[in-house]
Design a protein around this nucleic acid. Structure first.
Lengths: 246, 246
DNA sequence: AAATAATGTGTTTAATTTACACATTAAATA
DNA sequence: TATTTAATGTGTAAATTAAACACATTATTT
């Protein structure tokens, strides 16, 4: 086991820093991660939920989570759950917040770290074998098990905010997408209607979409042009972002 | 102890939800909170650090933290540390992020939840009795103990972002402040120079400062008007905030 | 062949942000 | 006491950005 010696306390003041003996058993707490997995399908933003298997929450839906192993990084635990549940790796994953109210879990003290994940629902469709696992329109989410409603609300709000400032949204779309799909995505996430002409102008002026010179296939209307996001250009661009406003 | 029964698993699929037996001992992890306490003094943004008392990190500075008690909420643990260290209650406190790399702490597995706190350094001055506790200019922070450098960097970045979108900054100032103090605060946090006229215009146009009809006292130059922030008006105002830009 | 429904494009106006200069006031100095 | 100094306090013009708004084009469907 790793050792960590403590120096002599100055003036007898306990410095509150964690030392060996305190990390032993008495102060330990169960730690879990919960994944809020968003998908975009039929112009709707959806979240992947599982039926709760606790009697207390029978009939209710809950987020996908599991305990963190003692020798497992937090991010790794979240990836593990995602992989197990969706079969996907290389997905967008980001820590959102940690929820640790004493009585949030009926089985005892469990602190949970919430992760937001964005996946392309098309790629994923083949992998839902578990019939207790379902996509839910975010407009119909209510009464989740545990404190998962609060966790979900927090993650949705953060997604709404971050999607406006960072190119996260593209993770929810196919690699090749039309501007209509992109706009419907933003409208679904932000729950607003946007002007089509101004929306296009905005994205063209950012100059981060690569015109693939391809058209949509098998759409029941006039096909639109297909684009992909220029991640390289985005990464190189230095962000200024100074503007006080609240 | 609280009980939580599990329903029969469907089709033999393990649903990964946490149940009683798993919350027992084997999967437990030590959990701590670390407080990144910012203060503003002499037109400089500062952070409160303590000398590490671990031999491995001798001579290094570290954030103020402690283990979370098994029956203590995370926020409560952060408040406890703040109260113990600064003597202050009713301070601004916000969870920032959780750090859980397996080997981040030499004493074993310790996952830590980082909290950002903003305090008025003037009010606080009387309470630093512990001579191992010091304010450090954020421009001179380097080589902190543990992964505290990473935690500090994360918190500073988040502060820089949030101070532009929410009225956090006022927590770092006296209740009555001049526009010069406010501007210097923003310049210190964002590490930029701003145009004095445009800065004032911006804040006046937000219409959230209350003119107290008082002047600065004991300043070595022409006194400026004093203002306070109108929290009530801010709370009532509905936030629109829709603008894609990255 | 006609009707339909979505794509694709520009301009005008308003709002916001940026750049920039001078008179005023109180403290400090001579 | 008069002068100098340094910070406060204010306004306008230009440039940029956001918002409102309409019609021609193209592929599918009828």
């Amino acid at each position: 086991m790793i050792t960590a010696e403590k120096t002599t306390p100055v003036k007898g003041i306990k410095t509150l820093q964690v030392i060996q003996s305190e990390v032993e058993n008495t102060n330990r707490i169960a730690l879990s991660v919960d994944c809020i997995i968003f998908g975009f399908d039929e112009s709707k933003l959806k979240v992947l939920l599982i039926r709760s298997d606790l009697k207390k929450f029978i009939g209710k839906w809950s987020l996908l989570g599991d305990l963190v192993f003692p020798n497992e990084d937090l991010d790794a635990a979240a990836y593990r759950i995602l992989k197990q549940r969706t079969g996907l790796s290389d997905v967008y994953l980001e820590q959102v917040s940690t929820f640790g109210t004493v009585n949030r879990h009926p089985a005892g003290r469990v602190v949970t770290v919430a992760y937001c994940s964005l996946i392309n629902i098309e790629h994923h469709k083949l992998n839902i074998l578990d019939n207790e696992l379902h996509w839910h329109d975010i407009k119909n989410i209510a009464g989740l098990a545990f404190d998962h409603q609060q966790i979900f609300d927090t993650c949705l709000k953060q997604l709404q905010k971050r999607v406006q400032e960072h190119p996260l949204g593209f993770n929810l779309l196919p690699k090749k997408f039309s501007l209509r799909e992109l706009q419907f995505l933003y409208e679904a996430i932000l729950d607003i209607k946007m002007d089509r002409r101004n929306f296009r102008k905005k994205f063209f002026s950012m100059d981060l979409l690569i015109d693939l010179n391809e058209m949509e296939q098998d759409v029941p209307h006039r096909p639109g042009k297909l684009y992909k996001f220029n991640y390289e250009k985005y990464e190189k661009r230095k962000k200024k972002w100074v503007g006080i406003d609240f």
